[in-house]
Simulated scan of single mutants.
Amino acid sequence: MFDPTAFDNLKTVLEGAVYDLDLEGDIVVIDRRDLVDLAHFSRMYTISFRLPSTPPPPVSCMICLEMDLEQIANELLQRSVRPGCRLTVSFFLPIRQLETCSFIESALRRIWGDKRTIRQTLSHEFPHETPGYRNEVTIEFGRLIYEDNVADLQAMIPYMTASLEQLQKFSGK
Rank of each mutant, 00 (worst) to 15 (best):
L69W: 13
T161F: 07
L65F: 00
P4W: 02
P57W: 07
S48K: 03
S90Y: 05
P58E: 06
L144V: 05
D34A: 00
L164I: 02
L21S: 03
S90F: 02
R119T: 14
L108T: 01
D152Q: 13
T5V: 01
F91D: 08
L164V: 03
V28C: 09
T12F: 05
K173V: 07
T100W: 10
I63V: 15
W112N: 08
E129Q: 12
Q78I: 10
T121D: 07
P52E: 09
L69C: 06
T54V: 15
K173P: 06
C61T: 07
D114Q: 14
F91G: 06
N135H: 07
L51F: 04
T46W: 02
P56T: 13
I30M: 05
S163G: 13
E136A: 15
R33I: 00
T117D: 12
A17F: 00
Y45W: 05
D152G: 12
C64F: 06
P83L: 00
V13C: 03
V81G: 05
L21D: 11
F170E: 01
G113F: 08
H124L: 09
I157M: 05
I63T: 11
I139L: 10
A6E: 14
D8R: 04
C85I: 05
L144S: 03
L10I: 08
P158E: 09
R32M: 09
L77A: 10
L21G: 02
D26I: 11
L108R: 02
Q168N: 11
L76N: 07
C61I: 10
C61M: 09
Q97F: 06
Q168S: 11
C64I: 10
S102E: 13
F126A: 05
P58A: 11
K173I: 13
F92N: 13
E125L: 11
L76G: 04
F7I: 06
D26Y: 14
A73L: 14
E24I: 12
L153A: 02
L87Y: 05
G132C: 02
K11L: 01
T161I: 09
F7G: 00
T88Q: 08
S80T: 14
P127W: 08
V13W: 05
F91Q: 06
F2Y: 14
L108S: 03
Q71V: 03
L122F: 15
F103C: 09
E136R: 15
Y159I: 06
M44D: 00
I95V: 12
